[in-house]
Structure formats: C-alpha cells, structure tokens
Design a binder for these strands. Sequence first.
RNA 1: GGAAGCUUAGCUCAGCUGGUUCAGAGCACCUCGUUUACACCGAGGGGGUCGGGGGUUCGAAUCCCUCAGCUUCCA
Length: 878
Amino acid sequence: MSIATKYNPKETEEKWYSYWLEHKFFHSEPDEREPYTIVIPPPNVTGVLHMGHMLNNTIQDVLIRKARMQGKNACWVPGTDHASIATEAKVVTMLKEQGINKADLSREKFLEHAWEWKEKYGGIILEQLKKLGASCDWDRTRFTMEEDLSEAVIDCFIHLYKKGWIYRGYRMVNWDPLGKTSISDEEVIRKEVNQKLYYIKYFVTGSTDKYVTIATTRPETIMADAAVFVNPADERFKDLLGKKVSIPLIGREIEIMADEYVDMEFGTGCLKVTPAHDINDYELGIKYDLTPFLDILDDDGKLNEKAEILIGEDRFIARKKIAKMLEEAGNLEKVEDYKSQVGFSERTDAVIEPKVSLQWFVKMKELAQPALDSVVDGEVKLIPDKFINTYRHWMENVRDWNISRQLWWGQRIPAWYNPKDEWVVAKTREEAYEEFKKQANGTELSFSANDIRQDDDVMDTWFSSWLWPISVFDGFKNPDNPDINYYYPTNDLVTAPEILFFWVARMIMAGHEFRGEKPFSNVYLTGIVRDKIGRKMSKSLGNSPDPIGLIEQYGADGVRVGMLMSSPAGNDLMFDEAYCEQGRNFANKVWNAFRLVKGWEVDSNLENPNAQTIAWFESRFNEALTEIEHNFKQYRLSEALTASYKLVWDDFCSWYLEMVKPAYQQPVDAETKKATIQFFEQILRLLHPFMPFLTEELYHDELFGARTEKECCIVAQYPVIGSVNEELLKEAELIKTLVSEIRNVRNTRQISPKEALNLNINVQSGTDYSKWLNVISKLANISEVVFVTEKVAGAANFLVGKDEFFIPLAQNIDVDAEKERLTKELEYLEGFLKSVDAKLSNERFVQNAKADIVANERNKKAEAVSKIATIKESLAAL
RNA sequence: GGAAGCUUAGCUCAGCUGGUUCAGAGCACCUCGUUUACACCGAGGGGGUCGGGGGUUCGAAUCCCUCAGCUUCCA
C-alpha cells in the first residue's frame, strides 16, 4: 500500500488552507440563506497567540464550520484592536532603543512611528490563527483604529455628549504612573500585598509632649495632609477636637476634626486625610471643603515641589526615606507588618495612584438599564448562566466610565478649546468654530478658528471596541446597508469571563443605544487555560507552551481536539500536552481506518453477509448524532467531541470495521464496501468542524469518487439525523457483551486468539443469535456454534442476560477456579436479590413508588432468581 | 468584609426533574498480544462507602441544613 501508516499533518494543512482561501469558502456575502455570524474578540495588535486564543478561536471555528455545513451563510469577522496603552508603551520602548525620546517628538511624528509599527507587527496574531485553521472571512478584516471605525467612535462620542451622557469633570481617577494615563475602574486589578503600617506622631501645636498617633501605609503622602480625623464618639480625643497639630518634617499645621467615617478600632483611631491621594479622603475633603487639595505627586509618580521635601524622588523610594527621616526626628512610634489590597494597572502592572484630575466620563445609569434587562430577560444568553448573577451585580452598581486616556495612540477626543479654555464638542475644527459662534449668540468672536485647540487626550480602547459588532459592518457610517441589515444582530460571541464587563456588557449597551437591538444572542464564556497543576499560564512562570510549536508537533487537528477535550463552558481548563497527543492519536486512528477501507478489493460475485451489521451501525450513527446535536445545542462542545470520538473509535473502528472486514487478502462484497464508504464520508463530515484538515484531505480521495473543484468537506452537508432502530441497538449490545465474554474466557485461561473455539448456546430469552453467527465467529474466533437445551459438562460457561453459553475446552478446566468464580457471582446475586426483596416487601415502597418502577423491581427479582438457579446448577455439575 | 460557585476513580471531568441500564467516561495504571488498517495499536482487567456530619423520603451522588477545604467576582 502506498499510503503512509501515519498521518502527516504538515503535508495537508498548508495545502488545504490555501485551497479554502483560493476558493473563497470563508467569504460571505448577504444572500437568501439564514445568516450565522460571529465577530471575533479582536486581539491586541501587540499580542502574540497564546493558549487562551487557541481555545477561544478553536471554539469559534467549530461553531462557524458546523453552521456553514448546515447550510447557513456563515460569516466570521476577524480583526484587531489598537490597544492604546499597550501599543503606545511598545512603541515608546522601541523608540527608546533607537535613541528617540517620545517627549521630543510631535504628536504627528509619534503616530507615524506607531502606524509603522502596527503595519509591521500588528498582523502577526492573525497569521497565527490561520495555522490553527480559523475560517475567518479575511476579506472583512477590520481594525479598531482604521478610518471608518474611528469616525464611528467620534460620532458616538458626539451623540452621547449631545444626549448629556458624556460629561467632563474633576474626579478621583485611577492614575497609571507608568503608562502616564488614567484608566477605568475595570482596568484596575486588586491584589493583596504585604505592606507596613507606620505609626506616626503628630504633635499638637505648641506642645512637645501632647500628640496624636496616626497609622498609615503611605507615609510619603503626609505632606499632602489636609486634616486629622477622629470619630466624634471617641472619648480618647474629645479634648483635642478643633486643636491643631503640625505635620512632621514640614511643620504645616492642620486641624483635628471629627467624622463618623473614622473606624475607632482601626490603627490608633486617628486618621490622616489626604484628599488628593486617596478616594475616601477625597470624599471627606469634599464634605468638609478642605481645599485646596494638595497634589504632591507628578504624573510619573515622583514627588513634586509641593511636597517641600524629597522633591523628585519616586513614591516608593520616598516612602523608605521618609520613614527613616521620621524615625530620626522622633516622630515614628513603630512599624507593623500589614496586609492590604493594592490596585495595579491591568496593562502596565504599575501600582495605581489615586489622583484628582479633569477627565471625560460616560454616564452609565441610562445605558446600563437596557443592557441589564437584556440579559436578565434572556434576550442575550450567557453560557454558562452562572455568570448572570455577576453580571447583574456589576450592572446594578456600575459607576461612570472614565474614557480619557492621556495618550496619543487612539481616537482623539472631539472637544475643542478656545484661548479662554471654554470648550465645545464637534467633529472638526470648522464645526467647532461654528459652534463657538452659535454660543456667542451673534457677538463677534475674539479668536479665529486657528486659535482653538483640540483636547490632547484619546479615548479608552474599549470605547471603540464596544462598537465592534456594529462597526465591522459599517453600521455607523451607513446604518441601513445590506451587511448590517443581514448580519446584525450576530449569533454567538465567544470570549473570556474576565472581559464580561470591560467589553461584553458595554457591547450590549452600545447595541441597544445605537441599533436599538442586542448585538448577539449567545455569549459563550470560556474558562482560563491553566497548566496541569492549576496555575494560570503566564510569561513570568514560563509555563505556557508555544501554540505554534504545539501545532507543529501534534498537527492543528490534534491540538484543536486536545483543547476541546477538557473544556466545558465556563470552567477552567487544566491544559496538558497529553490531550494534544490524544488528539493526534485520534487523527491517526481515522487515517488508518481509511487505509483499511481503501485497501479492500471488491468481488462483485460475493453476497453481502453484513446486512445486519450495516443496519446496526446506521442506527448507532443516528443515535450518536442525536446526542451530539443535543450537546451542540447546549454549547457542550467538549461533550459533543467526546461523543464523536467514541462513535468513531469504539463503534466504527473497534466494532463495525472488525465485524465487516474481510479476512486477510480476501475481497469484500460490493454492498459492504459501498455502505462502509458512505459511513466513512458521513464520519468525515461529522468530524470536520473539529478536525478540518484531516477530514478535507481524506474527503478528496478517489475512494469517494470524483469531486469537482468546489466539492469540499468544508461545505459538504453536515449529517442529518435519520431513524434509530432501538431493538437492533439492544441486540447488538448483547452480541458485543457475548463477544467480550468469550474474549475474557480466552484471556483468563491464556488461550491464544488464534485458537478457534466452539460455542454452545442455551437460549432462554428468545434472542435470535443465528442472525449474528458470522459476527460472533469472526470477532471471537468461533469455529462452530451449537444450540443446546442442557448444560454442557467440562466447558467454561457464562451468562449473558438469561442465556447461558458454554465453551468446551480441550484442556481440563480448573474446577477450583471455576468454583470460586461461580461462588463469587452467586454471592453477589444473592445480595442483590436481598436488596430487591427488601424494597418489594416494604409496603410503603409498593404504595408510593410509580407503577413502572415497582414493575421493574419485580423484573429484576425474576431475573436474579433465574440466574441464581442457573449458577447453582452449574456449581452442582462441577 | 459581601456574593456566587466548586468538592464524584491516581488525573481531568459527565451524572438533566431523587428510583431500571446509577456509581460512569477519557487519560493514566496492570496483564496478555509484533494477528493481516493502526504499538500514535488490539484484547482483557483493577480502582471511588460520590469532602465530613445531620435531616427530608419507602428510596439521596442527586433535595434541605451544617461544618471543612478550594476557586472566582465585588468591596
């Protein structure tokens, strides 16, 4: 035979991927068919493929390929996200390496570099997806910062501003000193950190022995203190209220004030309030008007001149230094270890600095309501639905969304300022100038269009990606175009639970706000890919395998199967390369089954001896297909795959093929070969969504007849459920059990499979074994079958159901071993009978349980009684 | 501190509304097998008192309570 004994993925993958591309099988245009649409969660342009992408995109590809094969007009829109902080950081680093400082560049020049970088590296991740087999419509590839999509972002900003849902204001924001930008609440990751709690003495003005002690984790901010607060009910400090204390080291005086907010139990009961550097202090600062709020930190986290001391020091270095200075000055009472939650930037991992600044915000209340209802009412389904609670909680407590980012890479905020810093919101300079004119109410403006300047900040990347399902179909530029009308709302979204709020919730908001309709019907939330001992995969741990390396090692199909094998929706996946190995082995199994069938010579004179077997497999296929479809409907992909795997490996290869295959170098009858080829083709179609490359490769073999250029597995019809003969399935199960029992007899007695045996059957059940004789003979190597009505002496015997089987053995049977085996079985059956009897003699059971359950117990009893009798006879006969 | 979820074979997980086939699957493991598609294989096998305790019920892995452990989300 000319076909290799092992499937070689490398040879087929590239070939078929190009073929699919060439024939535009991934491309979709609106037509009369039902659409099935997925928009990809756009990966960052800075990203490279990691295991999370592999899982996520395998799932999307399985869904899209299946829909395509089921006759839907399948459209999977790919693209990337401009990731402003991450990309800007990358570009800044790259420039630094070239000796260029961002601060020396103009905005325009910097953006030139950034675009250059994007063109060069921004498409890597999409190329990697192709290796996985992703059948995206690449003609529709979009980028969140391309012109049309950017225009949509600007228009939405203006729209929401006019509606009063975007405002500008001084607020406490999360400042990322490394990215030098503010970020939204959702981008702050809280982690527990070991810290120190410093106890610092603040002396009462004019006194050298009277003082209060405050406990703080941030001694470097004392210079920004505005007051010391105690609880009004705290007796310890009653006499100090209204008195002044001086800040250590700098001597500035602040007042001791009272508010219920202060926890008397915590620390010393005295709280220093630093309104510019803590969100809670900020609230107190507002409440008691402790203005001006002293901000002693620069944008990069260094102390500024307002701090008076340690100017120019980084906040963490300053913390250590100031502790020492306090100690030397006699103000440090003690230091304790302390654990607390600290916020880190999602993008740069820098410790977040709370900072008061002027930013643009989106009001969330009105936007959130329809998005909340949408999920609660089931218009948008979350899979698994355990996420509904989390979603609801977030939506009900959502805070306004800070969308300003102090960066250049991104869509620039369309706000324009006149020389007096008054502002208008408009799309262009000209429109802004007109707007100023309008506001002036006919009065002559004192400045020209050239004197106004645009806001320096750009918008949060999520402010563009929340429009993704609409903007990829040009739904903003041209709201009534055929694409958006046809593809929107999309069907399924596959993403990680981590961005349920960042992205999913906001897309639902945008969908309702800008289209008056949900953006998708189902959200499939994948788990996190962890290593096999449960750790999150991360660069620093080095525990993440290289996805492309895996594909090279196990083949794309093998890796796809491996990823899905262990990933129920919403559960984390304990990834182990062994799963990929299993996937590869499965591909090889299919490959070799194919080699077998391909090798069969047909003798057209032969009768078909396999009618029974063929009928059985057809039923079994339909039974499995029913289960698989059911699993797909519930998005249980890993179970759908497992069911397919077992159907192919166990039922088709281990049973069906073994049943029908001709003896070595013997021909097969035409009908059997034809039926087997048909089954095989159905199997290829069934497996295609999971294993696109292998199935496409085999699909084109001449075994299946000539194919035209466009007849491909990728667009072949997915199997349709046919009829199931339950009786036949049951009977086949009996036969399989019988065969296993005979094999077991061989195994326990060390009889070679080559040695033919005789089989005597004492039929009690009415089963017609004669229809299966050829199968039994072939699979168990039985030379002669005799139907008997009495026990056969000197033979190994066993029961299948009610029927008793005997295998006369040439060698003497081991009486003791046989006795032991039968006694064990007898003991088990007697125990079983006892428990059934106990139920049946319980009046309350007989009265309360459903009739069919009681009847069934009676059946069990009858069967057990008859089996016990048979075994007792056998024992006596030994 | 608040909320949710999880705990079933060595590992990863199925077990829907309590009752035949309810204690299962895959991998791993053990024995045998170089038989003729495949050793990336075949045949057979061992292995769990369903986290602990209590309750409801004729009957609980499944429902309720409680304790313990783990995880996630929010403060």
